[in-house]
Amino acid sequence: MALALQQLINGLTLGAVYGLIAIGYTMVYGIIGMINFAHGDIYMVSAFIAVTGFTLLAAFGVSSVPFALVVVLIVAVLFTSVYGWAVERLAYRPLRGSTRLAPLISAIGMSIFLQNMVQLTQGARVKPIPPMLTGGIDIYETAEFTVRIAYSQMLIVLVTVGLMIAFSWLITRTSFGRQQRACEQDRTMTALLGINVDRTISLTFMLGAALAAVAGVMVTVYYGVVDFYIGFVAGIKAFTAAVLGGVGSLPGAMLGGLIIGLIEAFWSSYLSAEYKDVATFSILILVLMFRPSGLLGRPEVEKV
């Protein structure tokens, strides 16, 4: 019971991170119908920016953790958005309107490029940062086990919830959100209505990158270590989450992220940690077989 509760907390934390990254996948897929394979690496870039940021602030003698967090978050979001923009501009925009596979290949190329660029410029070794947010609240104690919510876990969940609210507002209530949704439905028609489709797509990439940046900073704080390979695994998991929730659905991405996080947490503690990825993918395959449009996706009527 106590262990289950602890895994629930761990799973939700992990799920929140996956969810944040998954939103980037789902938005990009929704608007241009491609898997942005480099998205996981954008998240990785952000984690590295966070490491540099925290180290730099420490070097300047900043000791206030909240202040450091806010500054690094802002800086990481800004720089990572530029990366998101550049990825779209360089690797995807020239290929818009060509075959379905071409952008996927350049996306894979971009992913390889970013990984190796970071490896070259930042070093291939694992980067540890000193623990920042230690401690937590013990919520339940038994003789042999203490259930504890770490402060960093609370931070992740709170920031994620806050971002989700802000983000839903952005998509449903603002003019950018309307343009974004219009582009998802029919890009040509949107362009005919005088909306700058290129700009909307660029902004979508930047927004997705910004959310991934937040996830990157959070993960750096949570785990305290970063390496250039984290983007690939997290990227696949997050894309799985997006598909699981229903590609194109923002709440679906979040839900998918939470489910994947929970599956991983419970599977590793009760069954076997080695096979947690197998479990994730097997469940994905099962969901797709029986509910191809994902959990919250709109079922698609085949257009004939």
Partner: peptide
């Protein structure tokens, strides 16, 4: 690998 990725793009 950096060049490899760039060449793919």
């Amino acid at each position: 690998m950096l060049l490899f990725g760039a060449a793919m793009i």
